[in-house]
Amino acid sequence: MKRWMVVACLTLGTGLLSGTVQAASFASVPLRPDGQALRQAVLSALAALSSPDFPVTLDDSAQGGGALLVLGGSVPFNPDVSSRTLTVAGVRRTEFNPQGPVPLVQAVRAEIGSLLGLTEFTPQAARRKLSGADVNGDGKVDLTDLALLMGNFGKSGGGLPGDLNRDGRVDESDLKLFTDEYRIP
């Protein structure tokens, strides 16, 4: 598709939708930090991923699920290891080394970055990853993602590629979310 056609399509989509669609403008990360020190480290890390128009919040409810984060473990740590992840009874558990080689906040940031699949720990990277606009999960919001969204446009059902706001429909609100994230190369 020619570049001017892409601009026209995205501009038209945005123009039709402006002021009429309430899009999701935040992300909630399901994690269960155990203890105040870990909770503060997680909140600090998520604050570093947030921006005024796209806050990243913690969902530590039982319904949210998510990995259990604990300080220490049942077996000693190698002194060179900041954290380790294991699965116990089907639950992902990340244990942080209390005497690790890096401060706890830095270890938590590294773990959250890994869990979210971030290539860099910035608000822009978090928004790109968590907004859902990267439909195929390749780390870029591009025309391949738009093609997947448009291939399902007008469809309803659970888990459809392109249902960015997760309301069970691929519609104008999803196109609006996509256009907020897409940048012409």
Rank of each mutant, 00 (worst) to 15 (best):
T122A: 13
K140L: 09
G72W: 03
V91R: 04
V21D: 08
T57M: 04
G162R: 05
V102W: 03
A126K: 06
Y182L: 04
G137D: 15
T179C: 06
T179P: 04
Q22W: 08
L38D: 01
D34M: 04
R84M: 04
G168A: 12
S18Y: 09
L10R: 10
L68T: 01
R166T: 15
P33E: 03
W4E: 08
C9L: 10
V108R: 02
D167T: 11
D53H: 15
G137H: 08
V21L: 11
G157S: 00
R109Q: 10
G113L: 01
A126V: 12
G154H: 01
K176H: 12
D180E: 13
G65Y: 05
G162Q: 09
M5A: 07
R127P: 13
R183K: 13
K2Y: 13
V141Y: 12
D145Y: 14
V141A: 06
Q63P: 00
L143V: 09
L149A: 14
S44A: 11
V42G: 01
G90P: 00
A37G: 03
P30V: 02
V105Y: 02
A24S: 15
V81Q: 06
T94N: 04
D171S: 14
D174H: 14
S61G: 03
S28P: 01
P76F: 01
T94C: 05
T144Q: 08
S51C: 11
M1V: 13
F153R: 14
D59A: 09
A37W: 08
N78Q: 11
A126F: 05
Q124W: 09
D142N: 07
Q99L: 02
L146V: 14
A89W: 06
A67F: 02
Q106H: 10
V42C: 07
P101W: 09
T144K: 08
D171Y: 15
S51T: 11
V141M: 15
G151W: 02
K176L: 14
R169G: 06
K2G: 12
G158Q: 07
Q124A: 12
R183N: 12
A48S: 15
L118V: 06
S156Q: 04
